[in-house]
């Protein structure tokens, strides 16, 4: 029907439809306003061309009521569009419960993903249809951006912090995955495909990937290898906070403040433990900055999260 020429991107996620409704509404509004102004200017240009016989008396160089009217009208329309866009946007902050969490790591120039079961893939991402997926993004080097047009989602992966993006695919298929933040020489090659498949196919696919250790299990090994368990285990002689159920819980700090132990807090506590010290503990933990890379950081975080059963069922911490 369109001779193979694409006009619209596929709509393949739970939010795509509502984003497009706003897009098309706005398109209709702007097209109408733009055309109205164009027609008006062309009409004036013809009617009042030099030498035409049009009536020119009663011209005015200002009209306060008119100017106030269009200023107020523009403001009101702008506020409506703003509110609509903002409400849809804020859903980013509230992923539906029971999400599947996949770790995504950007590096020059590939995306590396790890499923909770430990399955790894590069520049490919397989997800089940109908289940919410949270991709927790990190970057090994420069800023990248995870972009799946068919899902209408985009999120930068920034070195030194974890960012999250969620989507629920609702249409099986293969969709483009791009890096949307310019990241150096092969920026345009950094991407691949997201494959959305029915849950049973996804389960079968996971099976076929061979059973590696889960991300959390790798994280636990690392937790021992780096010596974290030496202090953070209950039997330890050194007094260090017990990490069971830490994720998503409020932590009292020695400066009388309280923070939620989210991705950022856990990451900072590993790399920069003196920054926020849990109340009642001595600041004896050394920094692991430079000793763990971003991939290992994701394993550690996955392990810590696996210690709080609530977090895997209800991802409250991101709310």
């Amino acid at each position: 029907m369109s001779f193979g020429i694409p006009f619209t991107p596929p709509e393949a996620s739970s939010i795509a439809g509502s984003v497009d409704t706003l897009f098309y509404t706005l398109l209709a509004f702007t097209a109408a306003l733009g055309l109205f102004l164009t027609v008006l200017v062309v009409f004036y240009a013809i009617k009042y061309r030099a030498g035409s016989k049009a009536e020119r008396t009663g011209e005015r160089a200002r009209s306060l009521p008119l100017e106030v009217t269009w200023t107020v009208a523009s403001l009101l329309i702008a506020f409506v569009i703003f509110g609509w866009g903002a409400v849809l946007f804020l859903r980013r902050e509230h992923p539906p419960p029971d999400a599947l969490e996949i770790a995504g790591l950007g590096k020059q120039w590939m995306w590396e993903f790890r499923h909770p079961g430990g399955q790894r893939e590069i520049n490919e991402l397989h997800v089940p249809v109908g289940k919410t997926v949270i991709v927790s993004l990190a970057s090994q080097d420069v800023i990248h951006s995870f972009f799946v047009p068919a899902f209408r989602v985009k999120q930068d992966a920034v070195p030194g912090r974890t960012t999250n993006v969620w989507f629920t695919a609702d249409e099986p298929g293969r969709y483009h995955l791009f890096c949307a933040q310019y990241c150096g020489t092969q920026h345009s090659e950094m991407g691949g495909w997201v494959t959305a498949m029915p849950p049973e196919d996804y389960a079968a696919w996971l099976e076929n990937q061979g059973k590696g250790d889960t991300l959390a299990a790798d994280g636990e090994k690392l937790f021992r290898a780096l010596g974290c368990s030496g202090c953070h285990e209950k039997s330890s002689k050194v007094r260090a906070p017990d990490l069971a159920g830490i994720f998503g819980r409020p932590v009292a700090l020695d400066n009388q403040q309280t923070v939620i132990a989210d991705d950022r807090y856990l990451r900072d506590s590993i790399l920069n433990p003196k920054k926020e010290i849990a109340a009642g503990y001595d600041p004896v933990m050394p920094s692991f900055d430079g000793l763990v890379d971003e991939g290992e950081m994701q394993m550690l975080l996955a392990y810590l999260k696996s210690l709080s059963p609530r977090a895997t069922t209800k991802s409250e911490a991101t709310q």
């Binding site: 706005l26 703003f82 866009g85 946007f89 989602v153 985009k154």
Partner: peptide, 17 residues
């Protein structure tokens, strides 16, 4: 007018960059 699309948050997420 195209700027309105970019200022509207939910659309910008899609068309940004």
């Amino acid at each position: 007018l195209a700027g309105l699309f970019l200022a509207a948050l939910a659309i910008d997420v899609h068309v940004h960059a």
